[in-house]
């Protein structure tokens, strides 16, 4: 880890201002991903702004029947929240499928959204990686790519976004509330928060330098049956090979988002019109134009069968 100056911010405005005026600064919340990357010198901030004392750890109902989740709410507390368990069960389920209890106690809502890929080549500083060193090449393309993306990929990067939580927030149509360094606020639909890799895989989201996520807003509950199904190499504490977040209504309509397949939470709204026609038709739309490697081609069928299983469960 390289040296850094540590500062505990006391207000959102102060945190954003420091970030705007300090080169190579990073916000730190739970630290479960950032510190890991700093130890490997994949991340090399020279200024750490601790945002744990900003009072962003509340979960409150919104005036229009939704829920406002503070950016610093820990994953454990969000999963255990009574309203989330009752009205947004897919979110609870996704959180509980992720990481270990220790990590969920540390990890925060905004940190979870902004965590970096777990592509092994991104972590290995001896290997080329366009995300870590723009222009150096992609070691995963032609390398070991069993975990990697199959849709929205580019010739520069086939990394996936590793979050379970974000997949469920995508299916819930969440929006992200931020404060910019100049003090102005804005909301970003979660569909527009993360970017596809294109030829700039090192730019992963649409936030400006120093822009701080303050909350995630869930719209009014939509009812339906909430399912989060994660398929992984072991039964607990592993990243997804693929995952499916679904909300299925009594009439067979619904929403579906897929994890472990793309650089961002993957949802194709137009494809959802085919939900009543079954998993094959639905998956054909969700994974249209999939570009696989010999290592990860299995994911296409795995998504189809997992969606099939989820739709079956929703009927029961």
């Amino acid at each position: 880890m390289i040296g850094f100056t540590y500062k505990r911010a006391t207000s959102v405005a102060e945190a954003a201002a420091i970030a705007a005026h300090t080169n190579d600064s990073k916000f730190i919340a739970g630290g479960t991903n950032l510190l890991d990357l700093m130890k490997l010198q994949v991340e090399t901030p020279t200024y750490l702004i601790d945002i744990n004392d900003l009072g962003l750890d509340k979960i409150q109902p919104t005036t229009d029947g939704g829920l406002r989740i503070g950016a610093l709410v820990r994953n454990t507390d969000l999963a255990a929240n009574e309203i989330v368990r009752r009205d947004y069960a897919v979110l609870s389920r996704a959180l509980l499928a992720g990481a270990s209890a220790q990590l969920r106690n540390q990890a925060t809502t905004s940190g979870n959204l902004l965590q970096r890929t777990r592509c092994p080549y991104f972590y290995d500083t001896n290997m080329p990686c366009n995300k870590r060193e723009p222009g150096s090449g992609c070691s995963a393309i032609g390398g070991y790519s069993r975990q990697h993306a199959i849709v929205g990929v580019s010739d520069s990067c086939i990394a996936t976004h590793p979050s379970d939580m974000a997949i469920s927030m995508r299916v819930l149509d969440a929006t992200v509330e931020t404060v910019r360094p100049n003090g102005s606020t804005r909301t970003i639909p979660i569909a527009e928060l993360h970017r596809l890799p294109g030829n700039t895989p090192h730019i992963e989201h649409t936030l400006e330098t120093g822009e701080l996520i303050t909350a995630v807003i869930l719209p009014k509950p939509v009812g339906g049956i909430h399912i989060y199904r994660k398929v992984r190499d072991r039964a607990s504490y592993a990243f997804a090979l693929i995952s499916v977040a679904a909300i299925v209504q009594r009439d067979g309509t619904g929403r579906v988002a897929v994890g472990g397949v793309a650089h961002k939470p993957w949802r194709v709204e137009e494809a959802e019109r085919n939900m009543h026609r079954g998993a094959k038709a639905l998956t054909a739309g969700v994974l249209a134009n999939a570009r696989t490697t010999p290592d990860n081609a299995f994911k296409v069928l795995l998504v189809e069968r997992t969606i099939g299983s989820v739709l079956n469960e929703a009927k029961v």
Binding site: I28, G30, T32, L35, L48, N52, Q102, Q106
Partner: peptide, 27 residues
């Protein structure tokens, strides 16, 4: 492991278990 994967460094902070390798002492 010093990277939050093994749990050998688990301690309890304010009643909650965490991996002490993935947090800074100053925090």
């Amino acid at each position: 492991c010093d990277q939050g994967q093994c749990g050998a460094c688990t301690v309890i902070v304010d009643g909650r278990r965490i991996t002490s390798c993935l947090t800074l002492a100053v925090m």
